[in-house]
Design a protein around this nucleic acid. Structure first.
Length: 192
DNA sequence: AAAACTCACAACCGCAAATCC
DNA sequence: CGGATTTGCGGTTGTGAGTTT
């Protein structure tokens, strides 16, 4: 039997979105919010599949998108996060306000990969291309790890070690020394 | 000037996880 | 509880714009 297709392809538009389609999608979501993507196209009067609408909204039409060039700091953070968690684009994107997973993935594939190669690093493993590897680099990087996740009601930031949180290292202890669910007063974090 | 090539990025596809019934 | 459906993710492709030859 198998899965049913996500939409009736014969009756849906494909390819680049028109301004009219964008406007229909924006108007609908402004009025009713992001609901069921499956039924949204019909309700909004769009000849698109729900998947396509979701992608268009999340990656292009959302009002909180930043767009524009990545800064050097953003570049370095992407590289560091990727070295720890790999191609988890949605997780990486979660650390940037106004950036999407698709945007970061594209940016990685078109720019950062080359940047790492130019530095003599393998973009997949982040190890030197010449084969010499520094195995002492197994700990997560204290400069960015632990990461602040959210301000707490008592004016503290909840911080975690990504290595533990994402199960990246399995049962192996990370040597960064950050215990899971560690808290730090906000003022102290800002000074750090 | 135009053909060939490269780059950037929007969009699609297939799959797996999550949710629903 | 299990199958069906929906959502979200990562890999990949298509294509227009810009650059080089």
């Amino acid at each position: 039997m198998g899965r049913s297709p996500c939409c009736e392809k014969a009756h849906t538009n494909r390819g680049a979105w028109t301004k009219e389609e964008d406007q229909l999608l924006i108007s609908y979501i402004r009025a009713y919010g992001e609901g069921c993507w499956r039924s949204l196209p019909k309700a909004a009067g769009l000849q698109r599949c729900g998947k396509s609408c979701r992608l268009r909204w999340i990656n292009y039409l959302r009002p909180d998108l930043k767009r524009g060039n990545f800064t050097e700091e953003e570049d370095e953070l992407i590289i560091k996060l990727h070295s720890i968690i790999g191609n988890k684009w949605s997780v990486i994107a979660g650390q940037f306000s106004g950036r999407t997973d698709n945007e970061i993935k594209n940016y990685w594939n078109t720019r950062i990969k080359r940047k790492l190669i130019a530095r003599g690093l393998n973009p997949k493993t982040h190890l030197p291309l010449d084969g010499s590897s520094d195995h002492s680099a197994l700990s997560c990087d204290r400069q960015i790890m632990p990461l602040a996740i959210a301000p707490q009601s008592d004016n503290r930031l909840r911080i975690i070690c990504f290595c533990y949180h994402l199960g990246f290292r399995g049962s192996e202890a990370c040597s960064c020394g950050t215990s899971y669910d560690q808290y730090l007063p906000l003022e102290e974090r800002q000074q750090a």
